[in-house]
Amino acid sequence: MKTMKNNRFWIGSTLVITMLVFAPLAVAGQDSASSKAKKADPMQVVRGAKAWKNNCGRCHNLRSPKELTDEEWDVSVTHMRIRANLLPLEADDIKAFLKASN
């Protein structure tokens, strides 16, 4: 019984702290992402190349952009966005670079 109470305390505490910390960031993040996504940015590919080199090369060799199709890069970069804790805009830049280079 004591274990269950202790368990609920941990779960509840974690969820509350998470919501308190990240709720403001969530709103700010959605605003920034949506407003920037609407604008075409000619420098996106350049930023993407830099982000690709700095982030992907941190753990493994850089894959050739020609290894995958556009659609496969969409999924692969989304997967790596989670695994490598990338910012969404950073991941979008990397996708733009890879699609422009494959």
């Binding site: 969530a26 992402a33 969404p88 805009l89």
Partner: peptide, 30 residues
């Protein structure tokens, strides 16, 4: 993996341990 916003992603299921770097990022043989 369910992205909630730019800064938070919810992950549910069986996942590689996030403790340290080796297991989550470096263990694949290539």
């Amino acid at each position: 993996d369910i992205p909630i916003n730019d800064y938070v992603t919810l992950v549910a299921g069986k996942y590689l341990s996030p403790i340290g770097q080796f297991q989550e990022r470096l263990h694949p043989s290539w």
